[in-house]
Amino acid sequence: MTEWILFVVLSVIAIGSAVMMLVGRNPVHCALWLVLTFFCVAGFFLTLGAPFLAAVQIIVYTGAIMILFLFVVMLVNPEREGEPAVPASHRRAGLTLAAVLLVVMVGAITTRSGLGAIPTEPGGVTLRQVGTALLTEWMLPFELTSVLLLVAMIGAIVLARRRIE
């Protein structure tokens, strides 16, 4: 019962702050609402028995990615121009498409997934299992990640630096 209460509270906050992010006019406020959503996702990871991922989520997403976002928001100074209003027809079309997508996804989850037939494993996944899988079965992707991060670092420096005349 407490699990359900926690789940519902986290869901309401996550979805509510995601909506606030979408309707906000000021990008700084949008970024802060998104931080709240990310904290709720970390809470989901905790309730799903993945405390390490919850910690990484908070460190990487709210600690690194959103700080980067806030820096860029302040660098591009969006207050100056303000966002022009989106035409109502565009907005209607976008919302209709998204609603169709939601109906399809929820329909697929509830009717076609066959999840009820799979028993939930007791005990869940331990961090030891995750570490072992990461360094044995998924060794190559894990190592390639380091290359990817290096490429991203170089790419960001090259793209964002000013041209020296």
């Binding site: 799903l48 028995g49 993945a50 390490f52 991922l53 990484v56 999840l115 799979i118 939930t120 494993e121 007791p122 005990g123 869940g124 996944v125 299992q129 995750v130 072992t132 899988a133 990461l134 079965e137 998924w138 992707p141 894990f142 990640t145």
Partner: peptide, 14 residues
């Protein structure tokens, strides 16, 4: 969590 398998969490890390 449903499958009791670590691969899902490895994907999330990647």
């Amino acid at each position: 969590r449903q499958h009791g398998h670590a691969t899902g969490q490895v994907f999330v890390l990647l």
